[in-house]
């Protein structure tokens, strides 16, 4: 089976800083990494390939440096990588991103049909989780989000059984293949890369396509032009302004606090006294 995994290079949001003057993110303050959820998606694809045979191709849209994220996936065990990189992709929202990635997938599947497309649950920078389902709709294959486990793959019947996370539990879904899955981090543990993979990755040069290398592209659907949403104002999340110190000795502090909290009295009354 041929599995395509969409992967994104992201700034490490644990470290990133906000520039207090411009209220924008200072991307140079954080190293660029492979989106952690995508590492799980690649790991899962590699495991499926090892079980059922086939091939794993990773696909990313991003600036030229994103080849590093692709190399990371080769370390995990992916067979091939494709980067689509072009100025006309810049400023894409999720709709334009799913369009560009779908155009690349269409080209990839011309040489080899695809059984599954895997994505991460979300990218830790944009944080929307919208790109995966978007690609599925464009490819007209079923999207299955929040995947906890792939229970069964039946290549003869072209079907998969998926454990999908829902609020307070999970559901088992059967889907025809090809389909698109977005994976949770619980799906697997990303194992340490064996040495041969590391060596392969160090030398690996992914295929890079510009927009002219893709077929039947409607330029008006790409990048900023093809994006219905725009990012308006940005600001760091509310800090200090709301923070009021409660002064006084411990007794009086507690007294004041109780009054503040009991303004939300209804929260306590529902539960009833004992």
């Amino acid at each position: 089976m041929h599995i395509v995994v969409c992967i994104k290079q992201v700034p490490d949001t644990k470290i990133i800083k906000v520039n207090p003057k411009t209220n924008t993110l200072d991307r140079s303050s954080a190293p660029a990494i492979l989106n952690p959820y995508d590492a799980h998606a690649v790991e899962e694809a590699v495991r499926l390939r090892d079980q059922h045979g086939g091939k794993v191709t990773v696909l990313s849209m991003g600036p030229p440096q994103a080849v590093n994220a692709i190399k990371k996936c080769i370390e995990i065990g992916a067979d091939e990588g494709v980067l689509i990189s072009d100025r006309s992709f810049a400023g894409a929202d999720t709709l334009a991103t799913s369009y560009a990635l779908t155009k690349a997938i269409e080209k990839i599947q011309k040489s080899e049909p695809i059984s599954l497309v895997l994505c991460g649950k979300h990218a830790i920078d944009g944080d929307t989780g919208q790109v995966g389902p978007g690609i599925a709709r464009r490819m007209t294959i079923p999207p299955i989000t929040n995947v906890l486990q792939i229970e069964k793959v039946d290549l003869n019947e072209s079907k998969v059984e998926i454990r999908r996370k829902i609020e307070n539990g999970y559901e088992i879904i059967e889907s025809q293949m090809p389909c698109l899955l977005t994976v949770e981090k619980e799906i697997n543990e990303v194992s340490y890369s064996p040495l041969p993979n590391m060596i392969k990755a160090a030398r690996y040069q992914p295929t890079v396509w510009a927009v002219k290398d893709l077929d039947d592209v409607d330029m008006s659907q790409l990048g900023m032009k093809g994006s219905p949403t725009i990012v308006g104002k940005m600001w760091p999340p509310a800090k200090s302004e709301g923070a009021k110190r409660i002064e006084g000795d411990a007794k009086s502090q507690v007294k004041q606090l109780v009054l503040i909290v009991l303004e939300k009295r209804e929260l306590f009354e529902q539960k009833g006294g004992r």
Binding site: P11, I16, L25, I124, D127, P228, V231, M234, P237
Partner: peptide
């Protein structure tokens, strides 16, 4: 408006 980048920033999104 929504938090993004792991909660490091808030942004107003317009359509």
């Amino acid at each position: 408006s929504r938090p993004a980048f792991g909660g490091n920033i808030m942004a107003t999104i317009l359509c």
